[in-house]
C-alpha cells in the first residue's frame, strides 16, 4: 500500500504538485488522469522516490520511502518512465537488468533470475525478440521490452507512466490484460493514462488531477458521474457503459478557434 501525506514538490523553483494526499490500496489498479502538465508524471516520480519532496511524506507499507535504502526499495517498487532513449542493447540484456536489485558482486545471474527473465519476456510478448537489438525494433516493441524489464524486477508495487505509448490498439489491450494479471497476483499498480476508455474500464480507482492537485479520487462509475474529469480536461463529454466497458466520448467544441490572427 502507498500513502501520500500532504506531498508537495516540483522542479527547481517551479512547484508542480501541491499538498496531495491519497491512499493507493494493495492489489488495486489506480489510474492517474488529467490534462497535460497537471502533475501526473511528477506525482508518479514522487511516489517512486525519484523526486525529492518539498514537504509531506510517501509511505510504502507504512514506511517512509525516503528512509528505505534504494536497493531495498527497488525490490518492492518498480517504475517505468515515459519513453526514454535506450542504449542499443539486446532485448534479453535489457530485461536482465530488471534483476539488478537482486544481484550481488560479481554480477552473475542465478537460475531463479534466468527463469524470471524468461517469464517476463514471455508475459510481455518479447520472447521471440530476445536477441534483437532495441534499435532494430519498433517503438511498440521497445515499449514491451521495457515493460518486460520491469516485470523481471518482480516488485509488489508497479508504477507506470503512460505505458501505452507507441502501442497499437491490440498491444494496448494486451498490456491492459497484463496489468489485470498483475493485479490478480496481488500487485499494486499505479499508472498515468491518457486513454480514458481504458483507464475507466480497467482501473479499480481513478485519480483525476488538475493544476497539481487530485480533485477526485474514486471508483470509475463515481468518476464518470461527477464533473471532475471534464473539468480537468476542459471539455464536455458523453459516456456509456456496456459489458463492463466504459465509452467516454468527448463532444466536439462548439466555439470555433480563431486562427485568423496567425500567419505562417
Amino acid at each position: 500500500m502507498i500513502e501520500l501525506k500532504h506531498i508537495r514538490g516540483g522542479y527547481g523553483k517551479h512547484t508542480v504538485v501541491f499538498d496531495v494526499s491519497a491512499t493507493f490500496s494493495s492489489g488495486e489498479i489506480t489510474s492517474l488522469v488529467g490534462a497535460n502538465g497537471c502533475g501526473k508524471s511528477t506525482l508518479l516520480m514522487m511516489c517512486a522516490g525519484l523526486l525529492s519532496l518539498r514537504s509531506g511524506e510517501v509511505l510504502l507499507n507504512g514506511k517512509d520511502i525516503s528512509k528505505i535504502p534504494r536497493n531495498s526499495l527497488a525490490k518492492q517498487l518498480s517504475y517505468l518512465g515515459q519513453s526514454q532513449s535506450t542504449s542499443n542493447i539486446t532485448v534479453e540484456s535489457l530485461v536482465s537488468h530488471g534483476r539488478f536489485p537482486y544481484l550481488g558482486y560479481p554480477r552473475t545471474y542465478s537460475d531463479q533470475d534466468r527463469e524470471k527473465i524468461h517469464n517476463a519476456m514471455v508475459l510481455a510478448g518479447v520472447a521471440d525478440l530476445s536477441h534483437k537489438l532495441l534499435n532494430e525494433l519498433s517503438g511498440g516493441q521497445q515499449q514491451r521490452a521495457r515493460i518486460a524489464m520491469m516485470l523481471a524486477q518482480d516488485t509488489e508495487v508497479v508504477l507506470l507512466d503512460e505505458p501505452l505509448t507507441f502501442l497499437d490498439i491490440r498491444h494496448q489491450l494486451e498490456l491492459m490484460a497484463l496489468i489485470l494479471h498483475l493485479k490478480t497476483i496481488g500487485k499494486t499498480v499505479i499508472t498515468v493514462m491518457h486513454d480514458l476508455n481504458l483507464a475507466l474500464t480497467y482501473s479499480d480507482k481513478v485519480a483525476v488531477m488538475e493544476k497539481g492537485r487530485i480533485i477526485a479520487f474514486d471508483r470509475p462509475d463515481a468518476i464518470v458521474h461527477g464533473d471532475a474529469l471534464t473539468s480537468s480536461l476542459g471539455i464536455r463529454a458523453f459516456y456509456s457503459r456496456e459489458a463492463n466497458q466504459y465509452f467516454f466520448m468527448p463532444v466536439k467544441q462548439n466555439e470555433q478557434l480563431s486562427f485568423d490572427d496567425i500567419t505562417f
Binding site: Y79, I89, F100, Q153
Partner: peptide, 19 residues
C-alpha cells in the same frame, strides 16, 4: 554491468536500486 544499467538513464538506474 553497472555501467550498462547506468546507461539506461538516471531514473531507470535509480529505480533499479542504483546509487
Amino acid at each position: 554491468h553497472d555501467l550498462d544499467v547506468l546507461s539506461l538513464g538516471e531514473n531507470t538506474a535509480r529505480s533499479l536500486g542504483m546509487n
